[in-house]
Design a protein around this nucleic acid. Structure first.
Lengths: 194, 194
DNA sequence: AAGTTAACTGAACGCTTGTTCCTTTAAAAC
DNA sequence: GTTTTAAAGGAACAAGCGTTCAGTTAACTT
């Protein structure tokens, strides 16, 4: 047998990425084999190499796509007041990350499995995201509407706090995402002395 | 050759754990082989099995020891006022985690590589730690000294915020651990409306 | 209807994996 | 000084790894 009925690059390509995403998130990059991914897609391992040059690039592309989407989603913010910008950042971070638990998990956990060049690229994108929050905090400090001892530290603290939601939040649990959003909006405001 | 000059169980045992700890933290459990660990210790792979029944147990014991130490260090807290208890919790968490970056990394990242039984044990210990902070927050809410909408959510938020320090803090960097401690004490207080 | 191409199979490559086991040797016990 | 024992060596096991590639077939082009 070879080419199977209804086989198409436009279909299999995304399915490869989807399977890799789920398996990497669930078991970790190093613990997942190309044969496992292939089995999930319903294809032989060799066929995967029509869609990625190697396993490492498959991981990198998943992370890169995720970071690109994050940067695009967050950079549309107009120039508004610091407090409003902070609330908006909180909501965006929460919603964006809640919709993509697998991507977020990978982006945080599999950095060490990237080669040095790929690592540097992803790291740069993450820095760009952090810089957006820091700019908001700095504007707020200048305008005397926030009180933080160190904007860089506050940036890291707020992002860690927000991203931590992904470790426990589950749709259909005790709280809705909207309720969680309200609670965190307040806590973030308080944390930066707003 | 077999037993080498100066070989001792009391020496090799800890060295095996130390090597595993460092390698697991650096490259991830799944990416590290028993032969790598053995090479680091200066021993053949087979000799490792004098010190652990298998690779999985080696990981589990590292995590279990870490959690036991964390629980012991944090449970000595006497009955004091909520605000003082909160500050003390912040300091203890920061110091304890700053001293053990490898252990912390593993405890957070390698949970998925534990078998179901081992996972349940570690998870229970983590819950016990979280419960300590939640008790403090609840006492503070009852005494009207904290204002939080949801103590469980606040607990997770504060712990995520504090643990996040390990992703960027390095001894000898721009800020000392003491300075970071002061900043976080304030931010944590603010976050819970103290 | 014939020819071309994209998609996939299936086998093979050399290597590494966790773990077991018998042997050898240094240290401890007597 | 002899015997016992603990510690490590080193080879072997089957299984799995990422990756390559020649061969096969369905789908598209003309």
């Amino acid at each position: 047998m070879a080419r199977t009925t209804g086989s198409h690059s436009d279909i299999t390509g995304p399915r490869v990425r989807a399977a890799a995403l789920q398996l990497f998130a669930r078991h970790g990059y190093a613990a997942v084999s190309m044969r496992q991914i292939a089995r999930e897609v319903g294809v032989q391992a060799g066929a995967l190499y029509n869609y990625t040059p190697d396993k490492q690039t498959l991981l990198f592309e998943l992370m890169k796509t995720h970071m690109e989407e994050l940067l695009e989603a967050s950079s549309v913010r107009k120039s508004i007041e610091p407090l409003e910008a902070l609330d908006e950042f909180t909501q965006l971070h929460l919603n964006f990350h809640a919709e993509r638990p697998d991507e977020v998990f990978i982006a945080y956990m599999e950095l060490r499995n990237l080669g040095p060049d790929n690592f540097a690229i992803i790291e740069r994108m993450r820095r760009r995201y952090e810089d957006q929050l820091e700019a908001i905090l700095r504007a707020g400090v200048e305008g005397k509407v926030f009180q933080v001892a160190d904007t860089k530290v506050a940036t890291m603290a707020v992002i860690a706090m927000l991203t931590g939601v992904n470790t426990w939040f589950r749709e259909g649990g005790r709280l809705s995402l909207e309720e969680v959003g309200k609670i965190y909006t307040d806590m973030v405001r308080n944390a930066v002395g707003a």
